[in-house]
Measured scan of single mutants.
Amino acid sequence: MTVLPKDIPGDSLKVTVGTANGKPGDTVTVPVTFADVAKMKNVGTCNFYLGYDASLLEVVSVDAGPIVKNAAVNFSSSASNGTISFLFLDNTITDELITADGVFANIKFKLKSVTAKTTTPVTFKDGGAFGDGTMSKIASVTKTNGSVTIDP
């Protein structure tokens, strides 16, 4: 049996954390987006972790974005102690894959008090994996961190 590389060099799934701005007490939304989904033969499963400074940001909610089908079954998240974990699994293993680019999740943060303008990162942590529509590992994932700026 011969195994051929399935990824064209330079191609990767792009996962990007967005940015937001606000004043202390505001609730802002930071999107997590996927790009080049079709090039990577869709997404059938993924789990990953984001870190944030809990002294500056309070997670209000984490909701599935419009590219997630049947989110009540296929999407899960949790947030505590400065870490947000995400889990997606197409429970049907074929019919509810992520097949389009767009917003995977929206994180709502309540901004805490600061004395001066502060930009705090929302960054990928170690761990996690992504699988394509056949549940094979997506070897190349380009992750881009985001941030939230609090301006009193």
Score class of each variant (00 low, 15 high):
Val141Gly: 04
Met135His: 00
Gly18Asp: 13
Ala72Tyr: 13
Thr149Gly: 15
Asp126Lys: 15
Asp132Phe: 02
Val3Pro: 11
Val114Asn: 10
Thr120Asp: 06
Ser61Arg: 10
Val62Ser: 05
Ser147His: 04
Asn81Gly: 15
Val37Asp: 11
Ala105Asp: 00
Leu89Tyr: 00
Ile150Gln: 15
Lys14Thr: 11
Val17Trp: 06
Thr119His: 07
Gly18Trp: 12
Thr118Gln: 05
Val62Leu: 09
Ser12Cys: 14
Gly25Met: 14
Asn91Gly: 01
Ser113Ala: 07
Asp151Ile: 15
Asp95Gly: 03
Val17Met: 06
Pro9Phe: 12
Asp90Ile: 01
Leu87Trp: 03
Lys39Arg: 10
Ala116Tyr: 04
Asn91Ser: 06
Thr92Gln: 00
Val37Trp: 03
Thr45His: 00
Val122Ser: 06
Val37Cys: 08
Ile138Pro: 00
Pro66Thr: 14
Phe109Glu: 00
Val141Arg: 03
Asn47Pro: 00
Ala105Ile: 03
Lys23Gly: 09
Gly18His: 13
Val37Ser: 12
Lys6Trp: 08
Val59His: 08
Val43Phe: 07
Lys23Arg: 10
Phe130Ala: 03
Asn106His: 08
Ile93Glu: 02
Lys110Leu: 02
Asp26Glu: 09
Pro5Ala: 09
Gly10Lys: 10
Ser61Pro: 07
Val141Asp: 03
Leu87Arg: 00
Ala54Pro: 10
Ala129Pro: 00
Phe124Gly: 01
Met135Ala: 00
Val103Arg: 05
Thr149Tyr: 15
Thr33Pro: 12
Tyr52Lys: 03
Lys108Ile: 04
Thr19Val: 13
Ile8Ser: 11
Phe88Glu: 01
Ile98Asp: 02
Pro9His: 12
Ile67Asn: 09
Pro66Val: 10
Ser80Asn: 14
Lys110Glu: 04
Asn42Glu: 15
Leu89Gln: 00
Asp90His: 02
Asp95Ser: 05
Tyr52Ala: 08
Asp53Ile: 14
Gly127Asn: 01
Asn21Tyr: 11
Thr149Cys: 15
Ala139Met: 04
Ser85Thr: 04
Ala38Ile: 13
Asn91Thr: 04
Ser12Trp: 07
Val59Asn: 09
Ser55Glu: 11
Ile67Glu: 11
Met1Lys: 14
Leu13Pro: 07
Val28Trp: 07
Leu111Val: 07
Thr123Arg: 14
Ile93Val: 05
Gly131Cys: 03
Gly25Ala: 10
Val59Trp: 09
Ala105Arg: 01
Gly82Tyr: 15
Asp63Arg: 13
Ile138Gly: 03
Val148Asp: 01
Asn70Met: 07
Ile150Glu: 14
Phe75Pro: 01
Ala20Ser: 11
Lys41Ala: 10
Asp90Lys: 02
Thr16Leu: 11
Lys110Trp: 00
Thr134Trp: 06
Lys143Arg: 06
Thr83Glu: 05
Asp90Met: 03
Thr94Asp: 00
Pro5Tyr: 11
Asp101Leu: 03
Phe75Val: 03
Gly51Leu: 07
Phe109Arg: 02
Phe75Ala: 00
Val59Ile: 14
Ser80Phe: 12
Ala139Lys: 14
Ser136Asn: 06
Ser80Lys: 15
Ala54Glu: 14
Gly131His: 01
Lys41Gly: 11
Thr29Met: 14
Phe48Ala: 08
Asp53Pro: 13
Ala71Ile: 11
Ile67Thr: 10
Glu58Gln: 10
Asp7Pro: 11
Ser76Gly: 14
Thr16Asn: 09
Asp90Ser: 00
Thr94Ser: 04
Thr119Leu: 08
Gly146Ala: 06
Asn47Met: 01
Lys41Arg: 11
Val148Ser: 07
Gly18Leu: 13
Lys69Leu: 08
Thr45Cys: 07
Thr123Pro: 07
Val28Tyr: 05
Ala54Lys: 08
Thr45Phe: 01
Val59Leu: 12
Gly127Phe: 00
Pro121Trp: 03
Met135Asp: 00
Pro24Arg: 10
Ile150Arg: 14
Leu89Ala: 00
Ile138Arg: 01
Gly102Glu: 04
Ala139Glu: 02
Thr94Glu: 01
Thr27Tyr: 11
Ala72Gln: 14
Ala54Asp: 11
Phe48Ile: 04
Gly18Lys: 12
Phe130Gly: 00
Pro31Val: 08
Phe86Thr: 00
Gly133His: 04
Ser12Lys: 08
Pro9Lys: 14
Pro24Lys: 12
Thr33Lys: 13
Ala35Gly: 14
Val17Asn: 01
Asn21Leu: 11
Asp7Gln: 12
Asn21Trp: 12
Leu87Ser: 13
Thr99Trp: 05
Ser76Pro: 01
Ala105Gln: 00
Thr92Cys: 01
Lys14Val: 09
Val17Leu: 13
Lys41Trp: 07
Thr19Ser: 10
Thr29Lys: 09
Leu97Tyr: 00
Ser76Val: 04
Phe109Leu: 05
Leu13Ile: 09
Ala38Asp: 08
Asn47Lys: 03
Val114Arg: 12
Val103Pro: 11
Val30Tyr: 10
Val68Leu: 12
Phe75Thr: 02
Asp90Cys: 00
Gly133Val: 03
Asn91Pro: 02
Phe34His: 06
Ala100Met: 03
Ala38Phe: 07
Val15Asn: 08
Pro66Glu: 12
Lys112His: 04
Asp95Asn: 05
Ile93Tyr: 01
Ala72Ser: 13
Ile93Gly: 00
Ala129Asp: 00
Ala35Pro: 06
Asn74Gln: 00
Val148Arg: 00
Thr94Leu: 08
Thr83Pro: 07
Thr33Gln: 09
Val68Trp: 01
Asp101Phe: 04
Asn145Pro: 05
Gly18Ala: 12
Met135Cys: 00
Thr118Phe: 02
Val148His: 00
Pro66Phe: 13
Asn145Asp: 05
Gly22Glu: 14
Thr83Phe: 15
Lys137Asp: 00
Ser55Lys: 12
Lys39Leu: 13
Ala54Asn: 12
Val73Leu: 07
Ala72Gly: 13
Gly10His: 12
Val103Thr: 05
Ala139Phe: 14
Gly128Met: 00
Phe48Asp: 04
Asn74Asp: 06
Ala71Phe: 08
Ser78Cys: 15
Gly65Thr: 10
Thr134Pro: 01
Glu96Asn: 00
Ala79Pro: 05
Ser55Pro: 08
Thr123Gly: 07
Ile98Arg: 03
Lys23Ser: 11
Phe124Gln: 02
Lys14Leu: 09
Gly131Pro: 01
Thr99Tyr: 12
Thr144Val: 05
Pro121Leu: 07
Asn70Pro: 00
Thr83Asp: 07
Asn145Val: 05
Asp53Glu: 07
Phe48Arg: 01
